[in-house]
């Protein structure tokens, strides 16, 4: 009883604070100074049509590196924790229905290509490395659902992940040597605005981010898939 009333008080207090914030909010009608700079100078400095991409990859590129590192650490910790579990003999899973298997044969390459398209065109259209990587990882989910007893190699994912991570950092350091600073995109020519090969190194960097994110999310999914059906007697 006491506990419940305490909860109600906490929730009511939070609701009251949020209501004050809400009623005091007034929508703005101008960009602030920083965003205005990104929208005007960013176009000629970075040359990416998608302003969000120029913020994520170039102006705040170091944050993106940290973000990718956090995702890598997450995948690592999950791998450590779930590998420590006793892995009994895997129960053989039931075959998927023919509809799912046939549809997967058609859809898998298409979904994979959509993912690659999204991260290659990250500087021109909505999307980018993270979204494309998530779509790449979603092909793995479809694969695990339809080909239940196939073995998926951890090695390939690990190699993709490490190679793209190292290339990302090497491109960043090349920016220090050849251009203005870490992760500067002017190490390649800026090219014609709005074309695929434009915005300097952004398409290259975003492709590596896409591959890395895709590999990391796939590792997480695989880890969760592999605890399925282990050690059923104890559950």
């Amino acid at each position: 009883m006491l506990r419940n009333s305490l909860r109600v008080i906490i929730i009511a207090a939070l609701g009251w604070i949020l209501f004050q914030v809400y009623s005091g909010y007034s929508s703005r009608d101008e960009l602030n100074e920083l965003a205005g700079y990104y929208a005007t100078e960013g176009l000629s400095e970075v040359g990416a049509a998608n302003l969000v991409t120029s913020v994520v990859v170039t102006y705040r590129g170091l944050d993106t590196l940290g973000e990718v590192t956090i995702l890598f650490l997450t995948a690592l910790i999950i791998g450590l924790m779930l590998k420590a579990e006793h892995r009994g003999d895997r129960t053989r899973l039931r075959e998927s229905s023919e509809f799912l298997v046939t549809a997967s044969h058609v859809l898998l390459p298409v979904i994979f290509m959509v993912g690659v398209y999204i991260f290659i065109n990250g500087h021109l259209t909505p999307g980018g490395g993270f979204q494309g990587g998530a779509i790449l990882a979603s092909t793995l989910i479809l694969m695990l659902l339809s080909f239940t007893n196939s073995k998926i190699s951890h090695k390939v994912l690990e190699i993709t992940e490490s190679v793209s991570g190292i290339s990302f950092i090497v491109l960043g350091i090349l920016g220090v040597i050849l251009a203005g600073g870490f992760l500067d995109n002017k190490i390649l020519p800026l090219g014609e605005f709005g074309k695929l090969f434009s915005a300097g190194a952004i398409p290259v960097i975003y492709s590596f981010i896409g591959l890395k994110v895709g590999a990391e999310l796939s590792t997480i999914i695989l880890e969760f898939n592999q605890i399925q059906g282990t050690d059923d007697k104890s559950l």
């Binding site: 965003a35 990104y38 969000v52 913020v55 994520v56 993106t64 995702l71």
Partner: peptide
């Protein structure tokens, strides 16, 4: 404003 969009991109991941 593009800056909060970039922040959300980070936050989702």
């Amino acid at each position: 404003d593009p800056v909060p969009h970039a922040l959300v991109l980070t936050a989702i991941v």
